[in-house]
């Protein structure tokens, strides 16, 4: 057993898992509040990645890309705001008119939205892969073994720390603020919450905006981490993050994070030790097993159905 190799896979898996977790939170929050899967969420993440890249290019053109912290903050801020607007718009156009419709209608409309957004980006940005120059380089060598150095790059540290911070912030937001209380009320009983003076429409819109903002952070991290993005990254990442949300127990915030980390680790170890070829099959195979034996996920509560 090569511990250095193991440690490296662990680090890579955690980084990947943190990104999946950030996207998964968006799925889980929306499911929690209106009981539907926002299938366009993966595309929102992809749009976030494009926004951060565009912001960076504008910074470069304006000549302020030398000041790294300012550029990064600008990228984060602009991409979060713009992507949130998309999240809001998607809810307004494709989901709100269908809220009273049969349950799968919203799911299918979400898929339609996903196709629409994907092709929209493809037309407006072109189909080619977009490169991004590395902004944050270097790292720490954690361990040296005979044939292998374990690297923990600064980028990976930023991803894991930022994910952790955002996780804490959003958990507090939902547990402590009046907005969070309104969200939890809508989750339990939307009609009753409305009768008690909660603005249900606005609460649902806010949930979409929050999810989109988190997804845009994930998009920016991926842009910086891998250095390439294209219009197609949203779909697979979206499906994987959704798998993560289901694995952790959909509707549960810590569950989404845990599921994300698990999926990231499974992927890293599967491709590190077995074969890289069936990586996606492994993920989806696990998903099917979870769905059959524990559909409410690791941290979720089973739904009790009353007649």
């Amino acid at each position: 057993m090569d511990w250095a190799y193991f440690l490296q896979q662990l680090i890579n898996g955690l980084t990947l898992g943190a990104i999946y977790g950030l996207i998964a939170i968006g799925y889980t929050m929306v499911y929690g509040i209106i009981g539907m899967i926002n299938f366009a969420h993966g595309e929102i993440y992809m749009i976030g990645a494009f926004h951060s890249l565009i912001t960076f290019l504008i910074c470069q053109a304006a000549g302020i890309s030398g000041i790294l912290p300012l550029t990064l903050l600008l990228m984060l801020f602009v991409s979060m705001v713009l992507t949130s607007i998309y999240g809001w718009g998607v809810e307004r156009v494709a989901y709100r008119p269908l809220r009273g419709s049969f349950r799968l209608a919203a799911l299918i409309s979400a898929i339609g939205m996903s196709i629409f957004l994907q092709n929209f980006v493809q037309i407006s940005q072109g189909a080619r892969v977009k490169p991004m120059q590395p902004l944050i380089e270097g790292g720490i060598t954690m361990m040296k073994s005979a044939n292998f150095d374990v690297q923990l790059s600064y980028m990976q540290i930023i991803i894991i720390v930022l994910t952790f911070v955002l996780m804490v912030v959003f958990s507090t937001l939902i547990a402590k603020t009046s907005l969070g209380r309104a969200q939890r009320a809508c989750e339990q009983d939307r009609t009753m919450a409305g009768l008690l003076g909660v603005n249900v429409d606005r609460t649902i819109s806010t949930t979409f905006v929050m999810g989109a903002a988190l997804a845009s952070v994930a998009g920016m991290m991926v842009t910086l981490y891998y250095g390439v993005i294209d219009f197609y990254i949203g779909f697979l990442a979206g499906v994987k993050a959704f798998t993560a949300a289901v694995l952790g127990g959909i509707g549960s915030l810590p569950g989404a994070m845990l599921g994300g980390l698990l999926i990231g680790l499974i992927e890293a170890f599967w491709s590190g030790y077995l074969t890289i070829e069936y990586k996606d099959v492994a993920t989806f195979g696990i998903l099917v097993l979870v769905l059959i034996f524990r559909p409410w996920g690791l941290l979720g509560k089973p739904e009790v159905e009353k007649v």
Partner: peptide, 10 residues
């Protein structure tokens, strides 16, 4: 196609 699906559903 995406648009047609959404519009029909609505």
């Amino acid at each position: 196609i995406g648009l047609a699906i959404i519009l029909f559903l609505i």
